[in-house]
Design a protein around this nucleic acid. Structure first.
Length: 220
DNA sequence: TGCCAGGCCGGGT
DNA sequence: ACCCGGCATGGC
């Protein structure tokens, strides 16, 4: 019986062999990564791309531009991402905190001990555990594991997770299993999304799945 | 045609 | 402490 940590490391190795480096997060500046992290909440990435393109066209991918824009104007630009009024408020809440407490500097906001930075982000309205971890890892290169819907689905399917585990419990499993390494956490999350997108949406999810040879429950 | 996506919040038990 | 509805667009 393989221990959970060994199984998580085996999954990583298998996905790495199958897919190679993913080079996440898609987004070419920390600012854009933060924006994308909020816009992608419960939303297909293709829709987020459209919204970010509109922000780019309006020169709105900047902390000063976002600060100076009305929530209504911002909502209009990000409309393709869906739940746009909610997300406009959330982006505004982030920017308010950034300017109010950190002089508009993301580097300052993300400076300090990882748990302290995480609490800081979680205190912002609209930033939950996944968004906080994505911002820290992909915009701040802080080693924290990002758990998402695919992670839970895949781990449950491969019998490493019972139903109803909390976000922090799953995250802690990865922190125990893998050495604390930004590059590894980065790639692992991206690889889980890659395999999830390809194989967790159809009925015949085992067909060609790199993880098909590992212990799993086909009815999940 | 509906169902769902790289969540999170608020109100009700 | 859980459970559930709301948010909303574009793609299959």
């Amino acid at each position: 019986m393989m221990r959970t940590g060994a199984a998580l490391r085996a999954i990583y190795d298998t996905l790495w062999e199958a897919y190679g480096p993913q080079g996440w997060w898609p987004g070419d500046s920390p600012t854009e990564i933060v924006i994308g992290a909020i816009l992608t909440q419960n939303t297909a990435w293709s829709n987020v791309e459209k919204a970010i393109a509109k922000l780019r066209d309006s020169n709105a991918v900047s902390w000063t531009a976002l600060r100076d824009m009305s929530p209504e104007a911002l909502a209009l630009l990000i409309q393709p991402a869906g739940t746009y009024r909610v997300k406009a408020r959330r982006l505004k809440a982030f920017v308010d905190q950034l300017w109010g407490s950190f002089d508009g500097s993301l580097d300052r906001m993300l400076a300090g001990d990882m748990p302290a930075v995480r609490e800081r982000l979680l205190s912002i309205h609209g930033i939950g555990p996944e968004t906080a971890d994505a911002i820290m890892l992909y915009a701040g290169s802080i080693p924290t594991f990002v758990v998402d819907a695919y992670t839970n689905r895949i781990l449950r399917r491969h019998l490493l997770l019972a139903e109803g585990e909390t976000y922090d419990t799953v995250r802690a499993m990865f922190h125990r299993a893998m050495t604390s390494d930004t590059a590894v956490y980065n790639e692992y999350h991206a690889l889980l999304v890659a395999v999830g997108k390809q194989h967790c949406r159809t009925r015949a999810c085992c067909d060609g799945c790199p993880l098909a040879a590992m212990p799993h429950n086909g009815s999940l």
